[in-house]
Computed example of a mutant assay.
Amino acid sequence: MQIILNGAATEVADALTMAELIEQLKLGGRRLAVEVNAELVPRSRFSEHRLAPQDQVEIIHAVGGG
C-alpha cells in the first residue's frame, strides 16, 4: 500500500504498524514525534497503530542540545 511519509509517496506492506515502520526506517530507540493524518501517535501506541492506504505520516527526530 502507499502512504505519504514526510511528504513523499512511499510503498509499505499492508496493515503495517507504526512500530514496524520505525524499525524498517532504522529509527528504533531514537526520540521521535510521530503524527498520522495530523494527529499525534503516542509511543505507547506504536505497536498497535496500523497504517492505512494514503495515511499522511510525519516523523520528527527530537534533537537535544544545550
Rank of each mutant, 00 (worst) to 15 (best):
H61V: 10
G66Q: 09
A33C: 08
A19P: 00
L16Y: 01
K26Q: 11
P42R: 12
E58F: 02
E20V: 14
I3W: 01
V12Q: 02
N6I: 09
H49A: 11
A38F: 15
V57K: 00
R43C: 05
G65P: 01
L25G: 07
E20T: 13
N37T: 10
N37K: 06
E58D: 09
H61W: 01
P53R: 00
R30H: 11
I3F: 03
I3N: 07
I60S: 08
Q24F: 01
E23C: 09
A15C: 13
L51A: 06
R43K: 12
G7D: 03
Q24S: 14
L40W: 10
D14F: 04
G28I: 05
A19W: 01
G66T: 00
E20Y: 00
E58C: 08
A52Y: 10
R45N: 14
R50Y: 05
Q2F: 10
E35I: 11
P42G: 10
E39C: 08
G64T: 06
L5G: 06
I22S: 05
I4M: 11
I59S: 03
L32A: 02
L5K: 02
N6S: 10
P42Y: 10
F46S: 00
L32K: 06
N37V: 12
A52S: 15
V34D: 02
A9S: 15
L21W: 01
E35G: 06
G64V: 08
A9M: 13
L5H: 04
I4V: 13
E23F: 03
I22K: 02
L25N: 02
G28A: 15
H61L: 09
E48C: 08
R43W: 00
N37G: 05
L5D: 01
E23K: 07
V34G: 06
I3H: 00
I60A: 14
Q56F: 11
A13P: 08
T10A: 04
D55N: 11
M1Q: 05
E11D: 13
E23V: 06
V34N: 04
P42C: 12
Q54V: 13
D14E: 14
A33G: 06
G28W: 03
R43Q: 12
A8C: 10
A52K: 15
G7T: 09
E48R: 15
A19H: 08
E39G: 05
V63T: 11
A52T: 12
V34Q: 04
E23T: 11
H61Y: 09
V63W: 06
E35D: 14
V36A: 08
A15W: 04
R31W: 02
L40K: 14
